[in-house]
Amino acid sequence: MSTTNPQSDTQPDEGPRRSRWSRRPAEGSPAAAARARRRSKQRRRLANVAALMTGLVLTGALYSTLAPGAQAADEGSESSAEAAGRELYERSCISCHGENLEGVPNRGPSLIGVGEAAVYFQVHTGRMPLVRQEAQAPDKPAIFSDEEIDQLMAYVQANGGGPVLPSGDLRDGDLAAGGELFRLNCAQCHNFVGEGGALSSGKYAPSLEDANDLEIYAAMLSGPENMPIFGDNQLTPEEKRSIINYIQTITDMPDPGGAGIGRIGPVSEGLVIWVVGIAALLFGIFWMGSKA
């Protein structure tokens, strides 16, 4: 139950951002401009938070008995990580996901039962917190540090349970079998080699090129946004590891036949034959036709 994964990306500029974030979450993110416009809104929101804090504490005990029962192991005694996670949640997530993770209509879905896998995927890929409501949340540099993500995960996991992150070598699976599973289950949206592709009405399946093992695993477990869920009874953990092995092998693989031109097949090839092939030859015949 840890995010200290060998493959997890570390943002080079994570240090300074983290320290600023611990003071004020709105600053320094790539979306600072957008946030500035909504600063007054946030101030209001902070006031709401303060008011709701009381209510939260009061309803805390009642809530834990109402929530789905499986996770009630350390019920009542909130660990320090969960407390820190709650604090982060209340600062950055509560406006859309509600004070008790129950979701806010037309803003954000309920987080009860999504589990730490969903939290890891959404926050580690920078999709959450959301900058604005769009057809789809784009990935961007993660706003929270790995430690803060761990705390958020602990908080969400403690309040509703859900799929948990795996441990161990996530590429420990059969390469070729992973490829077959990838083509059957994933390629229809993410393209043959994980380049991503368009979905209906502005949505898209993102490229898997920069995704780390744990993010892919978490995405399969939690089915973020429009992606279907691939539970462990549908794709076993071994199969998931095979798929991850295939994706990472293919995306890291050099192209033996020269420049990959996006690895999307005929569209870029057609572009190249006109823009490079025909253009080069036109230049050639201009030159031949010109006089010495």
Binding site: Q188, C189, G197, S200, K203, G223, N226
Partner: peptide
């Protein structure tokens, strides 16, 4: 073509060949 670009939130299945939904 095999459809199956399933968008579970919008309940749509998209065909990658000619974009029928």
């Amino acid at each position: 073509c095999p459809v199956s670009l399933y968008e579970q939130e919008t309940s749509r299945i998209l065909c990658p060949c000619h974009q029928s939904q």
